[in-house]
Design a binder for these strands. Structure first.
Length: 562
RNA sequence: GCUCCCGUAACUCAGCCUGGAUAGAGUGCUAGCCUUCUAAAAUCUUCUUUGAAGAGAGCUAGAAGUCGCAGGUUCAAAUCCUGCCGGGAGCGCCA
């Protein structure tokens, strides 16, 4: 509908289409109009007061209004446009019917997205859930175009952290297994890490033992490798269960730090040859990034071994090679911002010019402070999901008219619980740190995931009760109907913006506002049995489709019944 | 010390990129609201009361704000610029 306004204005002013596109805004209240253009810019060019310009413009425009625009008027320096609501309604219903509704016909890149890339020495916690929720949603948003998304993951499976869990095992759990203790596998390994950390704060020797363990591992000591493999295999099978439960997409390729940690030396050679890098006095290889305000960075130790960034350089290049990527995104917390600035800047200097992006998200902390895995104060991902699911179950049982079978109950309660968790993690700007209050994430009312699912179920329930179809007659539209139509109409603008800004929260906010407007409509306009039944059913269905698409992009599944 | 991010209602946040009409939500607080059928009373309308059902986690209104502070740019600043204050993160031949 906006394009009619633009066309109209382009004819009467000498502004370009693009300029107009940016200028046109939506008035703060509906009775002012549906679209508006402020006349301040024209005022400079024409050297007249914007109020007079607005008045004159309205006079001119009124002579040739297309049928889509029912009226135009000015208020102060603003020219407001009223669109024809019946045509709007027809357009919206038609648009929603299209098969490719909500699919953006833009870009055609191959994008690798890396997440959640956990350490294998402990179970997943709420911070990882934020990572996964953002990762999933970003993938869906990027994929909702002509782009192709590749899911990548790096297991940080070696190093001092897992060595600590290994010492923990030898000191406190020799011979025990997750099975024998009846503990989920990854939690079993994480508990070893916590035991180690608590004990090492009293006993400094343990820290040394862990360092020695790491050296043994690097030497390939058979016993050490066997233990390492055992712990990691527990972690993997435990984590996979959580991934599945959470609904993580299939990962196209897993990389393992243990396989790449020594690599990247080829790149170092190239860099030295091209004089991007230099040798320090003691033989270490470094790069000077003073100009970028990143200081000097070591890339190879004086003993010739790699540091973390060396392998990351290698992996960055490898991912491009493996999948012929145009873009490479990393979903990693904001504590790694410096690392990625350095990484990307080195890659550019090596001539690897790609669309590198670090999608940095704020840390999750608790009302009582920072989460610390080693102290065991992190909220476990599994516990949170289970606990939320229990609450959801009680809710289902309290409103169910007949008893559901067990599988159905599990299924529904899990979807409701995940909607609560994912939505609470996605509704805020990703850059922002979250103070995760478990009680609020478990809330099912107000601005929450379950509210959205509920609105969806409500719409579905109406549609199910339809007995015989009535013809569609669009009579005079009520305000709430118009509001709903306009909101549905703005869906594509919203997802475009979310795509451009890599911002799932915009879609989350949209989904909430959409549901709110639907509930107002629902309250205001009886559907079944009304004269407008035919039209209103179509509108309910249009809402239902739009909400589902929005939730899809957030990685949230809908339910036909709550 | 240096760099980056954040500061909007009691709390949790949206809006800031791309300046525009009275700064929006949710939670909590306060006051209200259903719809259809049914039974009672009434000349009719309004109102009141009984029972059942649902599309029954919903809706409406109210109170609550120096948009961290101080300058600047602009016809116009929550939005852009500078400084300050407060919070977080980062600044290893750690990963």
């Amino acid at each position: 509908m906006k394009k009619f306004i633009i066309k109209l204005l382009a004819k009467e002013t000498n502004l370009k289409t693009k300029e107009l596109e940016n200028l046109i805004e939506i008035p703060p209240s509906d009775n002012l109009g549906d679209y508006a253009i402020p006349c301040f810019i024209l005022s400079k060019k024409l050297k007249k007061s914007p109020i007079i310009i607005a008045e004159e413009l309205v006079k001119k425009l009124r002579k040739s209004l297309p049928k889509e625009v029912s009226n135009t008027d000015f208020k102060g320096p603003y020219v407001n446009f009223f669109i024809d609501k019946k045509i709007l309604a027809e357009n919206v219903l038609e648009k929603v019917k299209q098969k490719n509704f909500g699919k953006l016909n833009i870009d055609k890149k191959k994008i690798g997205i890396e997440y959640p890339s956990p350490n294998t020495n402990k179970a997943l916690h709420v911070g990882h859930l934020r990572n996964m929720a953002i990762g999933e949603s970003i993938c869906k948003i990027m994929d909702n175009t002509r782009n192709k998304v590749i899911h990548l993951n790096l297991f940080n499976d070696r190093g001092i952290l897992i060595s600590k869990s290994m010492i923990g095992y030898e000191k406190f759990a020799e011979g025990k297994t997750p099975e024998s203790e009846n503990i989920k596998e990854d939690k079993f390994v994480g508990d070893l890490y916590i035991k180690f950390s608590k004990a090492s704060s009293k006993n400094e020797k343990l820290e040394k033992l862990a360092q020695e363990k790491l050296k043994l591992w690097e030497k390939g000591d058979k016993k050490t490798i066997a233990l390492w493999k055992k712990l990691n295999s527990w972690t993997y099978s435990g984590m996979q269960k959580t991934f599945d439960k959470f609904g993580l997409s299939k990962i196209d390729k897993n990389y393992y730090e243990s396989e790449i940690y020594k690599k990247g030396k080829e790149l170092i050679k190239t860099g030295l040859k091209n004089k991007v890098f230099y040798n320090k006095e003691d033989g270490a290889v470094a790069i000077n990034l003073e100009k970028e305000k990143l200081g000097e960075k070591i890339l190879l130790r004086s003993d010739g071994t790699s540091v973390y960034i060396t392998q990351d350089l290698y992996l960055a290049e490898q991912k491009i090679k493996d999948f012929n990527l145009d873009s490479s995104y990393y979903i990693v917390g904001c504590d790694q911002e410096y690392h990625f600035k350095v990484l990307f800047s080195i890659l550019e200097k090596l001539g690897l010019k790609k669309d590198w992006k670090h999608l940095s998200y704020g840390m999750v902390s608790l009302p009582e402070g920072k989460m610390k895995s080693r102290e065991g104060t992190a909220i476990s991902a599994d516990d949170l999901i289970t606990e939320t699911q229990e609450i959801a179950k009680k809710g289902i049982e309290s409103r169910a008219t007949e008893k559901l079978n067990k599988k159905e109950l599990e299924d529904r309660s899990l979807k409701i619980a995940l909607s609560a968790i994912k939505y609470s993690l996605l509704k805020v700007d990703i850059r922002r740190g979250i103070i995760f209050n478990p009680n609020e994430a478990l809330a099912f009312e107000g601005d929450t995931g379950p509210y959205l699912l509920y609105s969806y179920a409500r719409a579905s329930s109406i549609l199910k009760k339809v007995k015989n179809k009535k013809t569609i007659k669009i009579l005079d539209l009520k305000d709430t109907e118009i509001k709903l139509l306009k909101k549905i109409n703005s869906f594509e603008d919203t997802i475009t913006k979310a795509y451009e800004n890599l911002a799932p929260n915009l879609i989350a906010n949209y989904a909430f506002e959409l549901s709110q407007i639907f509930n107002e409509f629902y309250h205001d306009c009886p559907v079944l049995g009304s004269i407008e039944e035919g039209f209103r059913l179509k509108l309910v269905n249009a809402f239902r489709i739009t909400l589902k698409k929005s939730l899809d992009l957030l990685g949230i599944d809908v339910l036909e019944e709550m």
